[in-house]
């Protein structure tokens, strides 16, 4: 295989897997509340920065990662309780857009104040940028493979959870009709809370994965990734796990291939062109179902 093509494909799949994780995080809260957490980017940033901070305090890196994820999970609960739930009380309100985005900006400010606004070095997790394996004579970075493997494994696990477990079925029921689920005795409030925790954890993992690729993290980190994750979610079909994975990979791959073969200046623009094309031709996305409202 051509080295040039192979490098672009590998990078496209790896960053696409991160977009897929972000898209899946957006899907999780969309299932339960029809709301998206636009503060996901700040959670990605904060998780990576907390990992650096905890590691600098002397914690072993795995413990630092777990500690950071625990804090991010708690923030997920906070977001549901104080930024989304109040906004959803007024039926049909879109206040959650502003409140989640606003909370994300608040987190950026807190991080800048607490950790400083400079980019800080993010440690290598498991592999360094120099570690690689040779596949059919091609140089394949282990960091890219790690990102891909973790992202795909998490997405598959979540899909299995939703399809094969009782709690997963409960999440599905809440996504279809929360009022009926409440009548049936399901702990809808807890399921919604859990979806925000899981969504935040996915954002945290995505933040750590992408931070080790770049090598640095700063308070503004993550915002672009949420935009691209959103593109992936809409492209694949809002609410579809398979759609999130396919959408993320397609956005990542096409961006890199266009950047490589056409122009690097068009690398990001093509993602948004894909979004517009999908909204025009198939608004429900590749794997989404059209919304039907009963009179």
């Amino acid at each position: 295989m051509d080295d040039f093509f192979f490098s672009l494909v590998l990078a496209g799949i790896s960053v696409g897997a991160v977009y897929a994780l972000v898209a899946l995080g957006l899907n999780l809260t969309f299932w339960t509340t029809r709301a998206l957490n636009f503060g996901q980017g700040s959670l990605m940033m904060l998780c990576a920065m907390l990992t650096v901070y905890l590691a600098a305090q002397g914690l072993a890196l795995p413990l630092a990662v777990l500690g950071a994820l625990a804090i991010i999970a708690a923030l997920g609960m906070f977001i549901e309780r104080y930024t989304v739930r109040p906004a959803l009380k007024g039926g049909g309100s879109m206040g959650w857009v502003v409140s989640t985005l606003g909370f994300g900006i608040f987190l950026q400010g807190v991080a800048a104040k607490w950790f400083g606004s400079q980019a800080v070095a993010f440690p290598d997790i498991l592999f360094s940028a120099q570690d690689y394996v040779s596949v059919f004579g091609q140089y394949v970075s282990l960091q890219y493979l790690l990102v891909l493997a973790v992202a795909v494994a998490l997405i598959l696990l979540l899909e299995l959870f939703v399809r094969k477990t009782v709690w997963g079925q409960a999440v599905h029921a809440v996504s279809l009709d929360p009022e009926l689920a409440t009548v049936q005795g399901m702990p809808v409030r807890w399921i919604i809370l859990g979806s925000f925790v899981a969504s935040s954890l996915l954002a945290g993992v995505a933040g750590i994965l992408i931070a080790q690729i770049g090598g640095t993290v700063d308070p503004a980190f993550g915002f672009d990734l949420v935009l691209l994750g959103f593109v992936a979610a809409v492209f694949g079909g809002m609410g579809s796990s398979v759609g999130a994975l396919v959408g993320g990979l397609v956005v990542g791959l096409i961006s890199k291939l266009v950047g490589g073969y056409v122009s690097t200046a068009a690398e990001h623009a093509i993602a948004f062109a894909l979004l517009m094309a999908m909204l025009a031709l198939r608004p429900q996305g590749l794997f989404g179902r059209p919304e039907v409202s009963k009179a």
């Binding site: 490098s7 770049g214 672009d224 490589g260 690097t264």
Partner: peptide, 20 residues
């Protein structure tokens, strides 16, 4: 000559073009 946006997390496309 290749360009990138500040804070891009992956520069593969730019680098492989320079390499090619």
């Amino acid at each position: 000559v290749e360009s990138y946006n500040q804070r891009a997390q992956d520069m593969t496309a730019q680098l492989v073009r320079v390499q090619r």
